[in-house]
Amino acid sequence: MKTIFEYHDVSQSDALETFTKEKLEPIFNRNEFIIRADIFFKIENTSSDETGKKCGIRLSAPGPRLFAESSKETFKDAVSDTIKELQSQIRKRKEQIKTY
């Protein structure tokens, strides 16, 4: 499984990469059909203090790619919300893949 990180207007963080990989590990262990993850971090200009740190994750799997993103106060919160959304999408994808 390959993991690629991209930063837009944000400096690279090894701690953030480690946190994200740890959060993604259960998804990769349970879903062997996922072959790659592209993770995007960027800061957006917002008027709210509760948003602005944006995380987007794109997973490569059979069929259309899975993508989710969220904007929160910290990158760790954004990663957690994004992964929750991806788990929901994976669950739906697995229902479609079931063989008969």
Rank of each mutant, 00 (worst) to 15 (best):
F40N: 09
D81F: 08
N31H: 15
T99Q: 10
Q12C: 00
S88Q: 12
L59R: 04
T46Q: 11
S70K: 13
K94S: 14
R58V: 10
T82I: 03
K92T: 14
S47R: 08
F33D: 09
Y7A: 06
I90R: 05
D49Q: 13
F28S: 08
R91L: 10
G56E: 14
T20L: 00
E73P: 03
K54P: 00
G52C: 12
E69P: 03
T51H: 14
I35E: 10
E73A: 12
C55I: 12
I34F: 11
Q87K: 13
P64A: 11
E22M: 07
Q12H: 14
K23N: 04
A78N: 01
F41N: 06
S88C: 11
F5K: 04
Q96F: 10
R91I: 09
T99G: 08
V79E: 02
S71Y: 06
T99N: 10
Q12A: 10
P26K: 13
V10R: 02
P26Q: 07
S60W: 06
D9L: 08
D49E: 14
G56Y: 06
T46P: 11
K42F: 09
L16K: 03
S47Y: 09
I57R: 00
S11H: 15
Q12F: 05
P62S: 07
F75D: 02
T18Y: 02
S60V: 13
T20Y: 05
I43W: 01
D14K: 13
I83M: 03
K21H: 02
A78I: 00
L24C: 04
I90C: 05
L86Q: 01
K94R: 15
S13R: 05
N45P: 04
L24A: 05
F67G: 00
N45Q: 11
T3W: 08
T82P: 05
K98C: 03
R65I: 11
Q12R: 11
Y7V: 07
A61C: 14
F41T: 07
R91S: 15
S13C: 06
S13M: 05
K23W: 05
F19Y: 12
E22H: 14
R36F: 05
E50K: 15
H8K: 15
R36G: 00
Q89C: 06
R93A: 15
E73R: 14
S71A: 13
Q87D: 15
S88A: 12
T74C: 05
Q89W: 04
T3V: 13
K98W: 03
F41Q: 10
C55Y: 08
F33T: 08
S70V: 05
R93K: 15
S88Y: 12
F28K: 08
E32F: 12
D81C: 11
K54A: 07
T51V: 15
F19W: 07
E25R: 14
S11L: 10
R91C: 06
F28V: 11
K76Q: 12
E22I: 08
E32Y: 11
E69S: 10
K54W: 04
E44S: 08
A78E: 01
K98G: 02
F40P: 03
L66D: 00
E73S: 14
D14M: 11
R65K: 12
E85L: 13
K94G: 12
T3Q: 01
K94A: 12
R36V: 00
T46Y: 09
G56N: 07
A15N: 12
K42Y: 12
T99A: 09
L86C: 01
I34G: 04
